[in-house]
Amino acid sequence: MPSARAMHAMHPTLHAFLAVCLSKRSVARQLGMTLNTVLRLSRATEAKETCLRGVPG
């Protein structure tokens, strides 16, 4: 799983890919993430929601 900082940084990129109607599976392949990570990030409306509790980021 990517670090909290990496997830925070990838959040805008992921949403940009989704905005141009790429599938979540395709986005996962392009960013080198698991599908579950993409699903979790896609539900977050703001990058700060991607940070894990207790992990500085």
Score class of each variant (00 low, 15 high):
M1C: 12
S3N: 13
A4P: 10
A4Y: 00
R5S: 08
A6F: 07
A6G: 01
A6H: 11
M7A: 15
A9P: 00
M10D: 03
M10E: 03
M10G: 01
H11T: 08
H11K: 11
H11S: 09
H11D: 06
P12R: 10
T13N: 06
T13V: 15
T13P: 00
L14Y: 02
L14G: 03
L14I: 12
L14C: 13
H15S: 05
H15F: 06
A16P: 00
F17C: 07
F17L: 14
F17E: 02
F17D: 02
L18N: 11
L18Q: 13
L18Y: 11
L18R: 15
L18M: 14
A19Q: 14
A19I: 03
V20F: 08
V20T: 14
V20P: 00
V20E: 13
V20Y: 08
C21R: 15
L22E: 01
K24F: 00
S26T: 11
V27D: 00
V27N: 00
A28N: 06
R29K: 13
R29A: 13
Q30S: 08
Q30Y: 09
L31D: 01
L31H: 00
M33V: 10
T34H: 14
L35M: 04
L35K: 07
L35W: 06
N36W: 05
T37N: 05
T37R: 05
T37D: 07
T37Q: 11
T37E: 09
V38Q: 05
V38R: 04
L39N: 15
L39W: 06
R40F: 00
R40M: 02
L41G: 05
S42V: 01
S42G: 08
A44L: 05
A44Q: 10
T45G: 12
T45C: 03
T45M: 05
T45L: 09
E46N: 12
E46P: 00
A47N: 02
K48N: 04
E49N: 09
T50V: 14
T50K: 10
C51Q: 10
C51K: 12
L52N: 01
L52W: 01
L52I: 03
L52S: 07
L52P: 01
V55W: 05
V55G: 01
P56W: 06
P56I: 07
G57Q: 06
G57R: 10
